[in-house]
Structures are given as structure tokens and as C-alpha cells.
Design a binder for these strands. Structure first.
Lengths: 221, 221
DNA sequence: ATCAGAGGGTGTAATTTTACACCTGCGTAA
DNA sequence: TTACGCAGGTGTAAAATTACACCCTCTGAT
């Protein structure tokens, strides 16, 4: 079987126009500003959040020492594992950039899943794919030192932009919580990367100068 | 919605006797001895491995520095994320104890998933539940120091046994690779636990003496 | 205009973890 | 029987990471 998913969008594109109309008649469009809380841990699962645009962070705990689980980019469902396995969300979701979200009705989506086996198979493939990707991401981070993990994070962000210059919508502290090291380790590694001519950085703006060597560090050899 | 899954067994118990017969007419029972490789990374996904008894380890790489992803206990599907999202298994699975496995035919299972919406919903719930659990496990490990992570691992094993005395079918090296620290860290923390009267241990046998304090260390506060 | 807070940044000390060296006992293959 | 390898175990030195102290700049509120 070939890999057919590039994101959660594929699931929604499978719906017939009737099904689509039924789903969207009961859904709402929401906009969140950068920094806003989208889902608070413990909230009952009544809706399915589909991220139309923006970047979202999932974290286990609220401030101040929240552990960041994962980043979601546009085209993904937010917290999809909780929708069909727990009564409440088991983490919090926060907008890192301005976000546009479609709030689908869970009952309607469930009804469509049951009625449309093409959709349910696509959905099974989607959550398998998304979890497999998440698992790989975590494992790759786990086996790296602080420099490698930071380089890896920067490289991953770069994949979502066309240019070598882009903005990472994270504070140093947040980057630290994603890769599992301290804020100071992030700052010192960034300083090293600058000194060695791998990147330029100024606040949240970053320019990758030597992508090859950065990739090498990300691989941690 | 209440949480309805305790393991992958629930999915199989949904089948009608006709469906059950169809699935098992094309399946094989296999036994693996402790240490045997069950799935080699890169193997094409043609079957679905259901773990009837035993403990299995998933790892990203072969020896010598393999990173251990996860442990699976009886009643789980092995590597279920790969079945519907990739053409090849992206990790290796190895028997830690003697294992009994049912090798289901992927095409037949897929056919049943498409035909039986109760099964497909149960399966969606199962993979959501299993991945949510795995994610939680990884996050809990990530936020701990070496002593906390080791105490956590021991506590998790204890949940699968009735007694305070049990065998952990892992070498110190393997325990280290699961919790993400070095072999020496595991050994030194075990020695500390013994000195402080939290456990007794002799090779793979372990007896928990002070479960309360071990839990406290596992929580790392 | 000033003040407070947040974020970026750096140096140094303390702590944690790893690496290395080496010892033990046990099983097993020659 | 011997010898080898493997796993458990421990001490010490080296390396990596964190914690703390403190700096600067910017921004928004009073």
C-alpha cells in the first residue's frame, strides 16, 4: 500500500457534497490570535478541531513548567487521539501564530465515519500516519544532545517555509521545552551556531547559512 | 463517551462468529522464544501481529545502540501504526519473553473493517487509545531525571504483576535504552534504591519494599 | 517620562550524567 | 578443565547540562 496521506485534509476531501454540507452545516469557523489558548486540558470532547491555518502547540501542563508535546501545522486535526478515546482532552492546545480553525461537530463526524467506509479507512490511515510521525519525531529528539536537538528543531521548521530566512514563533524557553533541554542550553547552542557561521539569528528571525552542516549536527554524528 | 478499551482484544471480540471464522481461517499462530526477532525493520506489511501472550519490545534500530520505543504486553497489536500508514515496518519488534502471536491476514482484516462499522469505530478508538497512552508514557519519562525514570519503569512493570516480587525481562542495558539514560546510571540508581531500602534486587528479580517512596521518586517532586 | 515585566543573552559554579576502567560471577563452548 | 564472553556491579574522571546571577533592550502601562 502506498502512503496516501500528506495531512488530515485528505479525510475531509473524501466526503461527497451532501456529506460535506451536513458536516459544515453544524460546524463553526473560529479564529485565534497568537498566544491564545485553544483547548484547555480537561475540557470535554464535544468537537473536532481542524487546523485550517497557523501553528499550534500541544502541552501536557499549563504554565509555568509546561512540557511541550508536539507542534501541529495547517491541515491537521488537533488532539485527534483524545476525540475517540477519552472523555476529556488530556492536554492543552495553544496558538503559536494566528490560527484559523474549523470546529466540526463530533457526533456528525462520527455518523459519517460509520456510514462511509472510505472515510473510515482514510481516517484510520490518517491517525496511524500522524502518530507514526509523532513517534518518529520524539525518538529522533530523544537520541540527540542539545545541539543536535536544536539543529533538528530548526531544520523541521525550515521544511515549512520556502526560504532560508523565516520566523520561528517560539520563545527560547518554548524551544527548550520542545527539545527537552534548558533555556540556557538553547541560547548557548544558538550562540555557537552563529559563531560557527551556520545561522544568523535575531530574536525570532533566523537565517540558515550552512544548511549542510546544520543537518549534520541535527543527525548528531 | 466512556473509555471502552482496555486492549486490542476488544476489537477482535466484536466480530461475529462468521467474521471470526473468516479471519482465523487465514491466520497463523506463531510462537517466539525470548530474544527472538519478530519483525525486522523494513519488512513489508502484509500481516497484522496480535500479541496473545508475552512481552514485546519495539526499537528503532538494530543492535548495538538501538533506541527502545516502547513495550507491548499481551492483548495488543504490534506496530499497528505501520499497518495502515506505511508499506514497510519502520522499526523492529523483539520478544522479551516467550511470546504467542496470532498472525492475521491484513487484507481480510481490512475487508472486515470496511464492512463492519462497529469494528472500524472500535479500531479507531483502539489506535487512538493506544497512541494516547504511548504519548503519555513518553512524556512522563521525558520530564524525569534518571532516578525518577527508573522508578517509573519499575512501577510500570509492577502493574503487570500481582505481587511485589517479579522478574523484569530486561538487561540493565535495555532498561537504560528504554528510559534514555546510560547503563551505569541504571546500575547506580538501582544500587541507591537498594541502599535506601526501597527495593531488593538480584539480577532480573526485583522485590519492591517501599512502594510509596518508590512512587514518590517516580513522580520526581 | 518612568517603571515593570518579558525576552534575549552570557559567564560561572553546581549538578547530573556519561565514559572509561576494571572487577565479579556465571554459563557454556572448546 | 580452562577460557571466553556476557551481564551485573562500582569507583573515578570527564563531559554535558542546569541553575543562578546578572546584563541589556524593548514594550506597554501608569
Amino acid at each position: 500500500m502506498e502512503q496516501i496521506h500528506d495531512s488530515g485534509k485528505r479525510c475531509l476531501s473524501i466526503l461527497s457534497s451532501d456529506e460535506n454540507e451536513e458536516l459544515y452545516s453544524k460546524s463553526n469557523s473560529l479564529n485565534f490570535e497568537a498566544g491564545e489558548l485553544i483547548i484547555k486540558k480537561g475540557t470535554p470532547v464535544n468537537n473536532i478541531y481542524f487546523l485550517k491555518s497557523g501553528i499550534v502547540e500541544l502541552s501536557l501542563n499549563e504554565a509555568p513548567h509546561r512540557q511541550i508535546l508536539n507542534l501541529l501545522f495547517d491541515g491537521e486535526f488537533i488532539g485527534i487521539n483524545c476525540v475517540f478515546s477519552t472523555a476529556q482532552y488530556r492536554f492543552s492546545a495553544r496558538a503559536l501564530t494566528n490560527c484559523s480553525i474549523e470546529l466540526l461537530d463530533k457526533e456528525t463526524f462520527t455518523k459519517l465515519l460509520k456510514a462511509n467506509s472510505t472515510l473510515s479507512m482514510a481516517f484510520i490511515q490518517y491517525i496511524s500516519w500522524v502518530n507514526e510521525g509523532f513517534l518518529n519525531w520524539q525518538m529522533k529528539l530523544k537520541e540527540k544532545n542539545s545541539a543536535g536537538a536544536l539543529a533538528f528543531l530548526i531544520s523541521e521548521f525550515q521544511k515549512n517555509f520556502d526560504s532560508n530566512s523565516f520566523e520561528i514563533p517560539l520563545t527560547r524557553q518554548e524551544m527548550a521545552r520542545i527539545i527537552g533541554f534548558s533555556k540556557e542550553s538553547v541560547l548557548k547552542n544558538l550562540a555557537d551556531f552563529r559563531k560557527e557561521g551556520l545561522i544568523n539569528s535575531n530574536g525570532k528571525s533566523i537565517t540558515i547559512i550552512d544548511a549542510l552542516r546544520l543537518e549534520e549536527i541535527a543527525k548528531y554524528g
